[in-house]
Each structure stands twice: as structure tokens, then as C-alpha cells.
């Protein structure tokens, strides 16, 4: 029964992916016609389509997929359904980096690089590094200790962020809060290119370890008895998921909910085998975020809502509906 459904479900996910891909860039304030996108370079509509909307679409696809994959990895690593890409403080570190950039008046460009994402990446990297060192030397690589240390670090950097916000000028605080909402607005492919290498690397590593991930989910002892080098695997998974999260947060801010719920939706649809889950997260995570963004851009015509506001508003009820429906089906 399940197996027969999987093919159909994957086909539906693919259809969703393609539909979103084709529809999203045509939605927006300025109506874009087919003739516009093959029109002459330098016209406003050509610019809106190819420099604003298509890069935004690509960024959304990469960010959504990366967050879903990172969430999936953390949920398996900690065998905890509540784990998200942000559980271990990566986003808190990034947010603190951004706050530092704002406070130091360093927004804009420095040596040809946009400053905010660089600071965000540095902040996220700092948290990942501290936790990694802690795990290697102090608290050990035990899953529980890693989780607890990560949550503690997360709170620590959140407090630093609150401190920075409190000390900042009104307008600076405003900018920090705006960044925290997460957004996909972009001019050109810069932010997408920032995520792309981490995304490719992450997908490859996770796909190569899909069987080990399955075993890890059943229990560390079982995995060990089947010859899985559990400690090394955990270390690698932690680094891969952190890399996916850090680059995404640096490029778009901490967009919530995608990393928590997309893996669960995929699990409900495709079962618990990681080979399928990885494909499902890529096929659903990206288009889900892009669809949310399309709504965020169009629901209030005056202004573009940050996508982070819409993800949970839209995804939450859908997830609850799916959860109830599945439970009824199983009962």
C-alpha cells in the first residue's frame, strides 16, 4: 500500500515543484507577460523578471531545501522531532553578528563585499566552532550533551542580541528586528550563490550517508553493531547541517518553520527512509518557501511582507490538517 503510493506522491511533489517554478515569478506588483521576459535587456520588466524575481526564486528554492535538509539531519541526529536548524544556536550567532555590524555602522559594502551576510556567517561560524570544540574536548560527543550545550549557547547569543538591541538607536533596533524576520528580497544572484556550494556539498554528503542515517535513527547501539562509525558520522552530520543552516541564515535571515515542519510533512508523505526523505525535502522545502514568499509579496500590495511571517501562518494549519488526517487514517 505504502510502496504503491510513494511513486504517486513523488510525482505530485514534482508537479508542485514545477508549478511553483513556473508560476511564482509571474506574480507580483508589476504584471509580467511572456513577451517581456524575451524582450530587450534594459527595460524595466526585463529587469524585474530576470534580476529581481528569478534570482529570488532560485534563492527561495535553495534556502527552503537547505533548511529542510538541515532540519531533517538534526531531527535524525538527536532523534528528536522538535529539533530545528536553529536549535543549536546557529541563527542566534548569526543574528548577533548582524547586530554587531549594525551597531558598528558597517552596513553596506566593505572591500566589495556586502557586510551583513559576512558578519552573519561569522557569527554562525563562531557558534558552530565553539560547540564543536566543546563536544571534542569538554562535554564529549554524546548526543544529549551536544543538544544541551547547543541550546545553552543559543540562549547566550540571544541574550547578547537583546543586549545589543537594547543599547542600540531606535532605527538600528528596527533594522535588527527586520533582519530576524527573514526575507528573500535580492537583486541578482549574490545570496543564492552563497548558499549553492553548501547546498550541493550537503546533498552529496547526506545522500552518501542515507543508510547510516536510517540506522542512526533506530538507535546508536544498533548502528554501531552494524559497523557504522557513529562518532565520526555524528560529527560530519553536525558540520553539514550547520553549514547548510549558516549559509542560509546569512543569505536570508532566520526564516522559521520550514526546517521544523517540512521534514515532518515529508515523513508523513513518504515514510522514514532517508533516501526518500532527502529527495522529498529538496522537492518540497524549496517550493514551499517560494510559495510562501509569493504570498508574502502579494498579500499586502503596498509592502513586501517578510517571508518568515508567512511560513508558519500558512504551514502551521496545513501541518495540523495533515497530522489529524493521518491519525484518522491509521485509527
Amino acid at each position: 500500500m505504502r510502496i504503491r503510493n510513494t511513486g504517486r506522491t513523488l510525482a505530485l511533489l514534482l508537479l508542485f515543484f514545477v508549478t511553483v517554478l513556473l508560476v511564482a515569478p509571474f506574480l507580483g506588483r508589476e504584471a509580467i507577460r511572456f513577451s517581456d521576459i524575451f524582450g530587450t535587456e534594459g527595460t524595466t520588466r526585463f529587469f524585474i523578471f530576470w534580476t529581481l524575481r528569478v534570482p529570488r526564486l532560485v534563492l527561495g528554492l535553495l534556502a527552503g531545501a537547505s533548511l529542510a535538509l538541515a532540519g531533517l539531519t538534526f531531527q535524525t541526529l538527536f532523534r528528536n522531532p522538535l529539533a530545528t536548524p536553529f536549535t543549536l544556536g546557529v541563527s542566534s550567532g548569526a543574528a548577533f553578528g548582524v547586530a554587531a555590524a549594525v551597531l558598528l555602522g558597517l552596513e553596506g559594502y566593505l572591500l566589495g563585499l556586502e557586510v551583513t551576510p559576512v558578519f552573519a556567517l561569522a557569527g554562525a561560524g563562531l557558534v558552530v566552532y565553539i560547540l564543536y570544540r566543546l563536544a571534542r574536548t569538554g562535554v564529549g560527543l554524546s548526543t544529549l550533551h551536544l543538544l544541551l550545550a547547543g541550546v545553552a549557547l543559543s540562549y547566550f547569543f540571544s541574550s547578547l542580541l537583546l543586549f545589543a538591541q537594547y543599547m542600540a538607536d531606535f532605527t538600528q533596533t528596527f533594522r535588527m528586528v527586520h533582519w530576524l524576520m527573514g526575507r528573500l528580497e535580492t537583486i541578482g544572484y549574490g545570496p543564492a550563490l552563497m548558499i549553492l556550494p553548501a547546498f550541493i556539498f550537503g546533498v552529496l554528503i547526506l545522500a552518501a550517508n542515507r543508510r547510516e542515517l536510517d540506522l542512526l535513527l533506530t538507535g546508536e547501539e544498533i548502528a554501531r553493531s552494524r559497523g557504522v562509525p557513529v562518532d565520526r558520522l555524528r560529527k560530519n552530520l553536525y558540520l553539514v547541517a550547520s553549514l547548510l543552516t549558516a549559509t542560509t541564515v546569512a543569505a536570508c535571515g532566520p526564516i522559521g518553520f520550514v526546517g521544523l515542519v517540512v521534514p515532518h510533512i515529508v515523513r508523513l508523505l513518504l515514510g522514514v527512509t532517508h533516501g526518500r526523505l532527502i529527495v522529498g525535502c529538496v522537492l518540497l522545502g524549496g517550493p514551499f518557501l517560494v510559495a510562501c514568499d509569493a504570498i508574502a509579496r502579494n498579500v499586502v500590495p503596498e509592502t513586501e511582507l517578510p517571508v518568515g511571517i508567512v511560513t508558519a501562518l500558512l504551514g502551521g494549519p496545513f501541518f495540523l490538517w495533515l497530522l489529524v488526517k493521518r491519525q484518522k487514517g491509521e485509527a
Binding site: R29, T44, I48, L52, H178, T303, E304
Partner: peptide, 10 residues
């Protein structure tokens, strides 16, 4: 308000 590029172009 925060003004996006598309909105400014509009």
C-alpha cells in the same frame, strides 16, 4: 515603510 525595489519601480 520599507520600500522594495519592485514597489519603487511601480
Amino acid at each position: 515603510p520599507e520600500a522594495g525595489i519592485e514597489e519603487i519601480l511601480f
